[in-house]
Design a protein around this nucleic acid. Structure first.
Length: 104
DNA sequence: TATTTGACGATTT
DNA sequence: CAAATCGCCAAAT
């Protein structure tokens, strides 16, 4: 076993740190982990994730703040509902207002 | 080992 | 805004 964690695990740790009412984009997560082109792999890591993993995956959106069209466990409707409940503003049905909710 | 797939990003049409 | 296109890279087939 090596000392480095899987990219997946690093993604989980970062996502767990997202404060309530804020969101992160896939690309930001990739960059924060030192892999600016790994946005797709970030999406995968989260897709492999399950609800019970303790990862608030509903706080992760694509670069426009758009909710994933085929969000795994309940669909983007459920994701939107959760975000609204946390105080995240929406500019559209499927778009988060990043200028107010994007965590740096 | 080659091809396809995908919870992405950016640009162009 | 929608669709097409290209780049990116691991996992699935």
């Amino acid at each position: 076993m090596t000392t480095d964690f899987s990219f997946k695990e690093q993604v989980y740790e970062l996502v767990k740190k997202i404060p309530r009412g804020k969101v992160l984009t896939y690309g930001q997560i990739a960059q924060a982990l030192g892999r600016p082109r790994w946005s797709r792999q970030v999406g995968w890591a989260l897709h492999q994730n399950e609800e019970g993993s303790g990862v608030p995956c509903h706080r992760v959106v694509n670069r426009e703040g758009r909710l994933a069209p085929n969000f795994a466990f309940d669909g983007w409707k459920e994701q939107r509902r959760r975000l609204l409940e946390e105080g995240v503003e929406f500019s559209d049905e499927m778009h988060v207002d990043l200028s107010h909710s994007l965590q740096k």
